[in-house]
């Protein structure tokens, strides 16, 4: 769903994630006996519509990157389904896998690690075309690559360079060019700006917004940087220890956070105005996030939550729609 001028309209979901679970076995000893599981993702559902940005936020270890890797088909989930344009992505035929690869691309955190240092910029950007359009002429590939490089704000003289000769911002533009050259429908952005200088971050974000509008892209954004998320997202899901604790349209979430964890996260964002910063109510969680091997029973936040009650220790709160489009998993809101 998405809010438009005409009110609420139902959009066809592009990507649906149903009850996704990913456990990593913990092995020990010579024989690799399984002694436990890291419950990286533990029952996560959401959907992304066309031309929409959906963000997953949370601390490191909350499972957001695992979800991204499952969506990209790099990891096979323990259970649950990921459906893209009506098709389960883990039950695709060979031809359908190629179709999925054309339509779902990614931009990673560190461009110097996500670009092959032995390849030239133009070859990196051309590679997806060469894989998917074997009949395309060299001139056509070259034309498309150079057009795109210009579009993402790179000059043609950089095309013959190696990624190591570029700045961080330039290299990330190359990675973005590689991700959009096939005109995909969905791009997974895994912390696309957090390895960059602050001055460059804004340029990259603006580029991503421009490309989204021009190419009708959808983004699945993974981030822990709340100001970035607020700027770019239509929807935001907050994750804690492998579960979504709150899901809402971006503005709504930032204006009216419901879950104590979201409130704590937001209250930790620095304000540019010192007076506003002082006036801000700080919600501080006790202690450190527990390990995902043995998450606490009941609500996973209860050992750290200032509002925790007896109920929170015993019963796990379900993700419920508290207000229209605003979902929260917390006992404070289950008994209205």
């Amino acid at each position: 769903m998405s809010q438009s001028r005409e009110g609420w309209v139902i959009k066809v979901p592009l990507l649906e994630v149903h009850n996704l679970v990913k456990y990593f076995p913990l092995r020990k000893g010579l024989l690799g006996r399984i002694v436990g599981y890291v419950k990286a993702v533990d029952g996560v559902s959401f959907s992304i519509s066309e031309n929409e940005t959906f963000s997953l936020v949370g601390e490191s270890g909350s499972g957001k990157t695992t979800i991204a890797r499952c969506v990209l088909g790099l990891l096979k989930p323990t259970s649950g389904r990921i459906v893209f344009m009506g098709k389960d992505i883990f039950k695709l035929s060979k031809e359908e896998i190629r179709w999925y690869r054309r339509n779902v691309q990614a931009v990673f955190q560190n461009p110097f690690l996500s670009l092959n240092p032995r390849m030239k910029v133009e070859d990196i950007v051309a590679e997806p075309l060469k894989v998917h359009y074997k009949d395309m002429s060299k001139e056509e590939i070259r034309r498309r690559v150079y057009d795109l490089l210009e579009k993402v704000g790179l000059t043609a003289d950089l095309a013959k360079r190696s990624p190591y000769d570029l700045s961080g911002g330039q290299a990330q533009r190359v990675a973005i060019a590689r991700a959009v050259i096939l005109k995909p429908k969905l791009i997974v952005l895994d912390e696309p700006t957090s390895a960059l200088d602050v001055s460059v971050q804004a340029q990259i974000l603006n580029l991503l917004v421009d490309l989204k509008n021009e190419l009708k892209l959808s983004y699945l954004m993974i981030s822990h940087d709340l100001s970035v998320v607020r700027y770019i997202s239509d929807w935001v899901a907050v994750m804690y220890l492998g579960k979504i604790v709150e899901l809402a349209p971006a503005e709504e979430l930032f204006e009216k956070p419901l879950h104590p964890y979201t409130q704590a996260l937001l209250s930790s964002v620095p304000e540019p105005d010192p007076r506003a910063m002082r006036a801000k109510k700080r919600i501080v969680l006790r202690g450190e996030p527990p390990s995902a091997v043995n998450p606490p029973a009941g609500c996973r936040l209860h050992p750290r939550c200032p509002y925790a009650s007896e109920e929170c220790k015993k019963e796990e709160p379900k993700l419920v729609e508290y207000e229209r489009g605003h979902w929260v998993a917390c006992h404070l809101y289950t008994h209205k």
Binding site: R101, V104, F108, E127, V131
Partner: peptide
Amino acid sequence: PYVDAAKIIGLSPLAIMFKHVLPN
């Protein structure tokens, strides 16, 4: 990540091995 990126592009394992992994 550049090997992941090659998988996401849709390159075959053999192509990834010889084009992205081996040269490096």
